[in-house]
């Protein structure tokens, strides 16, 4: 392990790259780090099964699909980092009986970026569509919303790390919009209207799955609307639909489904609220993508 690190660090030094600068240069680096930390936490401390077959299948399928599509459609190989994030997302959320299902989900996730796009902008969150496709089309997959449990430490961990990532990508508004509306509705319905004690609500909002969704899935800067107002309305719509699905249709993991159904609205919102597109490596989000240069 030490050797690997010293090798990487050595490589960086010879190329005169500061590791901190490298980490901060692209929000995805942090995201990869945090999601890996969550996975480690789940396996080491919550007692999730370390299913290496699953992890290897997901990572290899995602990365190879990404390489393949990059070769065919464009030459932006930095998207491999996004594929890593998608893979980590799938490792954290998706469960299945067979490795084929994982391979299928990973492939759909990556392929969706190239298929469902308008004006070179994809509008489905890759991990989200991968999960939905696997559940609906294979019948072999599921999500376990309860797998994180509800503990205060987790709020802190997921929350603060999540904040770091989203503020870095300057899309904290999506998280905020979603959480305020979703938790507001849940609070009104369960505590104010029905009269459940407050800890009922606390248990609900401290669920690790919902926090992970709010901070890491809904915030994907590429597939969300470009303008701030558009993002806020879009996030609120997802929150309302998720609330409805959870409380009136008794759908588990409702936010994941809500995001899937409402992702296409991104196109509409981009038409309504004009704004330049987000670029991962641009320090200024308003800068057009074609003019950006790598910061590292």
């Amino acid at each position: 392990m030490e050797n690997i690190f010293s090798c990487i660090l050595g490589h960086m030094k010879t190329k005169e790259i500061d590791p901190i600068q490298f980490l901060l240069a692209d929000a995805r680096h942090l995201q990869i780090l945090f999601l890996s930390a969550f996975l480690y936490y789940g396996i080491r401390y919550i007692g999730w099964e370390a299913d290496w077959q699953k992890f290897i299948t997901i990572f290899s399928t995602s990365l190879f699909s990404q390489l393949l599509f990059c070769k065919i459609f464009n030459k932006d190989y930095s998207a491999l980092k996004s594929a890593l994030i998608t893979s980590l997302g799938l490792c954290l959320l998706l469960k299945a009986n067979h490795v084929y299902t994982y391979a299928f989900a990973s492939f759909v996730a990556i392929a969706s970026k190239f298929i469902f796009q308008i004006q070179k902008k994809h509008f489905y969150n890759p991990a989200n569509i991968g999960i939905v496709a696997a559940i609906v089309l294979t019948g072999d997959a599921w999500i376990s919303p309860g797998q994180w449990g509800s503990t205060a430490i987790l709020i802190f961990l997921v929350g603060s790390l999540g904040v770091a990532v989203v503020t870095k990508v300057e899309k904290f508004d999506t998280t905020l919009g979603f959480m305020l509306v979703f938790f507001g509705l849940e609070f009104y319905r369960n505590v104010v209207y029905k009269g459940w004690p407050f800890d009922f609500f606390l248990h609900q909002i401290s669920n690790g799955s919902i926090l992970l969704f709010s901070f890491f899935m809904i915030t994907d800067p590429v597939s969300t609307p470009n303008s701030k107002l558009g993002r806020l309305i879009w996030a609120a719509c997802i929150a309302v639909l998720a609330f409805y699905l959870a409380n009136f249709q008794f759908v588990n993991a409702a936010p994941v489904w809500a995001l899937f159904f409402l992702s296409p609205l991104t196109i509409l919102f981009d038409k309504l609220f004009k704004e330049n597109r987000f670029n991962w490596r641009s320090k200024n989000p308003l800068q057009p993508i074609s003019n950006t240069l790598p910061t590292i």
Binding site: A50, W52, F55, I56, S60, Y77, L84, P294
Partner: peptide, 25 residues
């Protein structure tokens, strides 16, 4: 299996980072 798994993952990770950075350059 675990150590193999971790090794392989790290390998894929470093290769992909390496490739993506080289392409950027």
């Amino acid at each position: 299996l675990t150590s193999w798994g971790i090794g392989l993952l790290l390998f894929i990770l470093s290769i992909s980072l390496f490739i993506s950075r080289r392409r950027i350059r």
